[in-house]
Simulated assay, not measured.
Amino acid sequence: MTVEAFRAVVAAQGGSLLGPALTRYLESGAQGGVYATPAGFEAFISGGGNLPLYEKTSAALAGLYEQHRPDSLVDIGCGNGRALLPALQQSWHRPSRLDLVEPSAALLEQVLPQVPAAVEVHTHPSSLQAALAGLPEGVRWSLAESTFALHTLPPDERSEALARLRTRVDRLAIVEFDVPDEVPGGPEQLTRLARTYEQGLAEYVHDAEQFDLVAQGFLMPVLVGQLRPGAPRVTWEQSSGRWQEQVSAAGFRDVQVRALYDYWSAPAFLLTGVA
């Protein structure tokens, strides 16, 4: 079992935080649901390296608004607005129409009261695939953006969704992590995951309550989903080169990538393309 191989790697590296956290999670018998009950996710993005990460992300989005002046904007997987809302506040240009695609109703409810009053908001409490399938004919956006959300779609579903999205937008902006292309369950992947998750957990150790919520409510289920066959999986990350290839294959042109922030799990980047 890959989980047991991973635990051996963690023990060999002397993971003082990751080992006990992983053991506790496995013994609890918990099953996924990291976005359906988002307390762990919210605690995670509210601390550690996520603070400068989201500052850089929001600034990059605000720069795109000012550069391209979109009349309409769709944010795919907006979460609680951690990236979107500061970007709208920072930019001197705001779209007149904003669509929010977010499967978690609990997260979506947090965003709505904070959107600037002059912006017309449309909500889609569903996946991207469902939102596109139910979209009225003629609706399209000047800009589609997604921050740390499209990696939650399996690769084949993501390719199909990107191809459908291309027919509805003028421009695309994606912020994701540049994760090395590795053999799933291979020694390189297991070693990297052990090293990076230990580092990630260390950013929350100063607050015992937050540490427990982040570890058991978010990081451990995300980790185990990548390691245990049949476990609920919530992330399919890939290298920036693979992202470029996938977006280009969906029909987007002039696909470019630039570095955004050196995050603990992998460097974050901004990808842009033209439909």
Rank of each mutant, 00 (worst) to 15 (best):
D156M: 07
R97A: 13
H93L: 15
V115M: 01
P103G: 08
E160C: 00
Q114M: 04
L107R: 05
Q110L: 09
S127P: 01
A83W: 00
S104L: 06
P95V: 12
N80W: 03
S91M: 15
P125C: 02
G134V: 06
R158L: 10
Q110V: 01
A130F: 10
R158N: 07
L107D: 06
Q110G: 11
P95W: 12
R82F: 04
S91K: 12
L88V: 12
L85K: 05
H93C: 15
V139S: 08
P103S: 11
P125H: 09
G134P: 03
L108M: 14
A118L: 12
P95H: 15
W92K: 15
T152G: 06
E160P: 00
V119Q: 02
E157K: 06
L85P: 01
Q114D: 08
L88W: 05
R94G: 13
G138F: 07
P95C: 15
S159H: 04
S146V: 00
L128H: 12
V121L: 07
P125W: 03
A118M: 13
H122C: 03
D99A: 15
T123D: 02
D156T: 10
R94E: 03
E109C: 04
P136Q: 07
L112C: 13
L132R: 02
P155Q: 04
P95D: 13
E157M: 09
W92D: 14
E157Q: 11
H122M: 01
R158Q: 10
E157G: 09
E109Q: 14
E109T: 05
A105V: 07
W92Y: 14
L132P: 08
P86A: 11
R158C: 07
R82A: 06
S159L: 08
A149F: 00
D156E: 11
L150S: 03
T123F: 01
L150M: 13
F148I: 00
V111R: 09
Q90C: 06
P136E: 10
H122W: 01
E120I: 12
V119Y: 11
T123G: 01
S159T: 05
L112M: 13
A105I: 02
A83K: 03
V139D: 04
E145S: 07
T123Q: 10
L143R: 06
V139M: 09
L143E: 06
L128Y: 11
S126Y: 04
T152S: 12
P136R: 07
A83T: 02
A87V: 03
A87Q: 07
Q90G: 13
A131M: 05
A133S: 13
Q89T: 10
L143K: 06
V121H: 00
Q114E: 11
R94P: 02
E120K: 07
P103F: 09
F148S: 00
A83Q: 01
L135G: 03
L143M: 08
Q129Y: 02
S142K: 05
E109R: 13
A105H: 11
L143P: 06
R97S: 14
G138T: 00
E120A: 14
E145G: 02
